[in-house]
């Protein structure tokens, strides 16, 4: 058993008096593809945003290779550079071309040489099938294309773990496939991924572990076959039956 990349310890997050996350504990090991499922408002996205320190946890610890990122002693920017994030709304930089979107972080944050950065950006853009569009701007692309560029942008930083916050939820149905295909190929390359998703097929077929969340707590976690097909908890069964009815 290898050392976990990420250990979440007693993580809680409240907005005012509203507790969104309540004492969440879990680990991410290298190569894990973890799907986090659950109803809207169950705290999945907040958990992901806390992990990337986009939200400051109210209490609890986030250990990255054993070092606490919430202590205030670690520069959050250095940490974020190693933890990639893909958003529901893509969040590409509208003032830059596709290629520049994939270059700016490498050059400004990782201080890569320009030619190296370019090579890497083209490599990952090729991987997501967006190489022909390097000169396009975000406004000129479809949602699926934007999301693939966003994935390439995150990959170009060579992160140790990649977080996906409902990456297909803002897409038209016919574009969901192209993004999921990219994610599947990443999973095959042993990328460590943490995916908040409503795509049950992805959770079942691609992920190595499924976490079910409800009301800010982790209700059940385990291999996909167990959580999705023979759930132990009543809440999980309820959620899955309601979800599959739709």
């Amino acid at each position: 058993m290898s050392e976990p990349i990420l250990e979440i310890r007693h993580l809680s997050k409240s907005f005012g008096s509203h507790a969104v996350l309540k004492d969440v504990d879990f680990n991410v090991n290298p190569g894990d593809v973890t799907s986090i499922i659950g109803a809207s408002g169950s705290g999945k996205s907040t958990l992901l945003r806390c992990i990337n320190m986009l939200e400051t946890p109210t209490t609890g610890e986030i250990l990255f290779h054993g070092k606490d990122m919430t202590s205030g002693r670690v520069n959050p920017n250095e940490y974020r550079a190693k933890v990639g994030m893909v958003f529901q709304s893509f969040n590409l930089f509208n003032n830059m071309t596709v290629l520049d979107n994939c270059l700016v972080g490498q050059i400004r944050v990782n201080k890569c040489r320009k030619d190296e950065a370019r090579k890497r950006a083209l490599h990952y853009l090729n991987k997501v099938g967006m190489l022909p569009y390097i000169n396009a701007r975000p406004a000129q692309m479809s949602g699926g294309q934007k999301q693939r560029v966003a994935i390439a942008r995150a990959l170009a930083m060579e992160p140790e773990i990649l977080l996906f916050d409902e990456p297909t939820s803002a897409l038209d149905p016919e574009m969901v496939g192209e993004v999921l295909d990219v994610m599947k190929s990443l999973a095959r390359d042993n990328m460590t991924m943490l995916v908040v998703t409503h795509e049950m097929s992805f959770a079942r077929d691609v992920s190595t572990r499924v976490v079910y969340m409800a009301d800010g707590v982790i209700v059940e976690e385990g291999p996909p076959s167990q959580v999705l097909e023979t759930p132990k908890e009543l809440k999980t069964r309820d959620f899955l039956s309601r979800f599959l009815e739709k």
Partner: peptide
């Protein structure tokens, strides 16, 4: 976009 930039460590 600010969050996107933050997320890559800017």
């Amino acid at each position: 976009q600010t969050e996107g930039a933050k997320a890559i460590g800017m």
